[in-house]
């Protein structure tokens, strides 16, 4: 079955809420029905067909969002496990929020909260992502809960805020407060990491090539170790095509910092050595 194309025609300066795509998928609406439904742009109601054109059926396993823009929020929200969404262009906030097993590829950048509260599945962002990647929307107690989130560029502040499970990979640099209030899971990077990493971290792993600009004060230096689980983790990290494939698959020697003691945490910051 060929990919179904959804083309964004533009919405002026207005932001577009892409929740409609999740509802259309759940209700298996035809392109005609979708075009006739309404969408709120600012204070106005417009026909969805005026903002998007759809070619093909949404029952297709592969969907393509063309001409995407950073004005499109909630792209791929709740994407189910039988769907792949290819986004050509940038995305707005909340890309892949609550992803439910689907595969989401954005060949541009994403704004804040990409992959927040995602459950399972994978998100790949070819360029940069904003703040709170893999985090939690305001009010939720837990962030990303599973799956893999791969950013080929940089990510902003509070990457992995309240992260619960899963693998968050940033090929470039990470901003400040990485792993803030992290509950579990793994965040790794091939670049530099900003200030206050691991603040309020309870469990989980931050795995970096060099020490962050600063770590939360509640971290203790546990010394150098060869950790047996790292080769297992490396299989996951090296699986997708990315800069991480440069890492040796059997690498296991790290400097370990344990914290954040201020919350009685047993999270760890691991720095590759050797």
């Amino acid at each position: 079955m060929s990919a179904t194309t959804i083309e964004y025609k533009g919405s002026g300066d207005h932001r577009v809420d892409m929740h409609w795509l999740q509802q259309a998928l759940e209700q298996d609406l035809s392109p005609k029905e979708i075009s006739k439904s309404t969408l709120k742009l600012g204070s106005e109601q417009v026909l969805l067909g005026d903002v998007f054109s759809i070619d093909g059926k949404l029952s297709a396993s592969e969907l393509s969002l063309k001409n995407s823009s950073n004005r499109l929020d909630y792209v791929g929200i709740g994407l189910p496990s039988d769907k792949t969404l290819l986004v050509e262009g940038d995305c707005g906030h909340y890309l892949g929020q609550q992803l439910a097993g689907g595969r989401l590829i954005c060949n541009g950048s994403a704004l804040h909260y990409a992959g927040c509260n995602m459950q399972t599945g994978s998100i790949e962002i070819m360029s940069n992502a904003g703040d709170y990647v893999g985090g939690s929307i305001a009010g939720n107690k837990r962030g990303m809960a599973g799956g893999r989130l791969l950013i080929h560029g940089n990510s902003g502040d509070f990457t992995g805020d309240l992260m619960r499970r899963g693998l968050l990979m940033v090929a470039g640099n990470i901003g400040d407060h990485c792993g803030n209030r992290m509950i579990a899971g793994t965040i790794t990077s091939m670049g530099s990491v900003g200030k206050n990493a691991g603040n309020g971290m309870r469990r989980g792993t931050l795995l970096f090539p060099s020490k962050p600009a600063s770590m939360a004060t509640g971290f203790n230096d546990c010394g150098r170790h060869s950790l047996g689980f790292l080769p297992l983790l490396m299989r996951d990290i090296r699986a997708p095509e990315s800069a991480f494939q440069a890492l040796h698959p059997m690498r296991r020697r790290v400097q370990r910092y344990l914290g954040d003691a201020s919350v009685d945490g047993q999270g760890e910051v691991l720095i590759w050595i050797g």
Binding site: T186, T205, H225, L227, G228, F229, L232, R235, D236, Q266
Partner: peptide
């Protein structure tokens, strides 16, 4: 209480601190 788990590829592993490092 010092044990931690790591889930990789739908498999859960336990890391138990022992005197030579970790028992995985």
């Amino acid at each position: 209480g010092y044990q931690t788990s790591k889930q990789v590829d739908d498999h859960r592993y336990w890391r138990i601190p022992v005197m030579d490092g970790e028992f995985l």
